[in-house]
Write a protein that binds this DNA or RNA. Structure first.
Length: 103
DNA sequence: CAAATGACGTAGC
DNA sequence: TGCTACGCCATTT
């Protein structure tokens, strides 16, 4: 499979995360049938066009943390978008027990 | 073409 | 519980 195809599959998976739920880089890669590509999910989101419909805020790391440096503008932006849809961060982290999405 | 990079994950201590 | 080391691999330098 080419990386362009994988890219589309990853975006499809991310786009299917329900509002108010989250998923991790690793889970997304696995769901797209490409384990070992967690990092690619990140490099992919980084290059998203401004105003994309992709719910990038629902993607966090395996520890339940927002991947950006805590307190950075991006971190705050993501936290706001999560709060706006009902995902609460306690102690700077999302409770994967509660919000992690698995089909 | 070699080396560095990165919105990651996991094992080991 | 926290930190360090690796493994990983598309992209970028």
């Amino acid at each position: 499979m080419s990386s362009a195809e994988l890219k589309q599959r990853l975006l499809q998976v991310i786009g299917s995360i329900p509002k108010g739920r989250v998923s991790t880089y690793g889970d997304i890669a696995r769901m797209a049938g490409a384990p070992n590509h967690a990092r690619f999910v990140g490099t992919l989101l980084k290059n998203l066009p401004t105003g994309s419909k992709i719910p990038w805020q629902r993607v966090i790391n395996s520890k339940g943390e927002i991947a950006f440096p805590a307190g950075s503008d991006n971190w705050i932006r993501q936290q706001q978008r999560l709060l706006a849809e009902g995902v609460v961060l306690t102690g700077g982290k999302v409770s994967l027990r509660q919000y992690r999405w698995q089909p």
